[in-house]
């Protein structure tokens, strides 16, 4: 039971401030999102970003309402027997809309200690490699998710309570993997053509806002 260090605590005031205001000032303002893509592609990208964020927010709200409605239903004696399946559908939707939104804003969890300790040049090259390999992995999973969804569609599996085809609720998986892959591919390109190091097409690596970006 040895305390990890003997110094009096000197917590960085910035960290305290950031923790105190919770997430408020870190909320991503979709209106201010600037796509890393030029022209029409940028407009499409910004529109996708907006759709993702709406799906995320509505998905979470719907999940709360659905779960509570089930409680109320049970108390008054008529259970919503498809409640669990609806939540399954929502969690899949949230996860796959969210991974691409997180990629877009550089919010995926990573262990960046060694990365951060590297000098600029190798770090930049490594960032290109990370983004490119991650993109490749996501595209691979996109392909096999499509295969899986088509398989499920051809097998005709139904959700037992809702009695709808099961593939309807998993179709978000290939979509989410694809959009995530796209974000990482663009990040790789952005790192090649730009002089700075980018965590995503819109997020610059840097220590000033490390609290926000290093997650």
């Amino acid at each position: 039971m040895t305390p990890d260090d003997e110094k009096p605590p000197r917590t960085d005031p910035d960290i305290i401030a950031a923790a105190e205001v919770a997430n408020v000032d870190e909320d991503i303002d979709d209106a201010e999102y600037v796509s890393g893509l030029p022209g029409v592609l940028g407009v499409i990208d910004a529109a996708i970003a907006r759709i993702e964020s709406v799906l995320l927010a509505l998905g979470v709200l719907a999940m709360a309402v659905n779960t509570m409605a089930n409680v109320v239903g049970r108390v008054i004696g008529s259970t919503i027997y498809f409640s669990e399946e609806l939540n399954q559908a929502l969690i899949i939707l949230i996860t796959f809309a969210g991974i691409s939104y997180a990629a877009r804003h550089g919010r995926h969890i990573r262990m960046s200690a060694f990365f951060d300790a590297m000098p600029f040049r190798p770090r930049k090259m490594l960032m290109v490699a990370i983004a490119a390999i991650t993109a490749a992995g996501m595209f691979l999973l996109t392909w096999y998710s499509v295969v899986y969804v088509l398989e499920q569609a051809s097998r005709g599996r139904l959700l037992p309570a809702l009695q709808i085809p099961q593939w309807w609720i998993i179709v978000w998986a290939p979509l989410g993997f694809f959009l995530t892959g796209l974000q990482y591919a663009l990040t790789a390109i952005k790192n090649v053509i730009d002089k700075d190091i980018w965590l995503s097409t819109s997020t610059l690596e840097g220590y000033d806002d490390s609290v926000e970006e290093e997650v």
Partner: peptide, 21 residues
């Protein structure tokens, strides 16, 4: 703010759940 909170929850959920998956 409710919308922003729900979105932020969804984002954190996604980031954790893809790791669970």
């Amino acid at each position: 703010q409710l919308y922003a909170t729900a979105k932020s929850t969804g984002l954190i959920t996604a980031v954790v759940f893809i790791l669970v998956g």
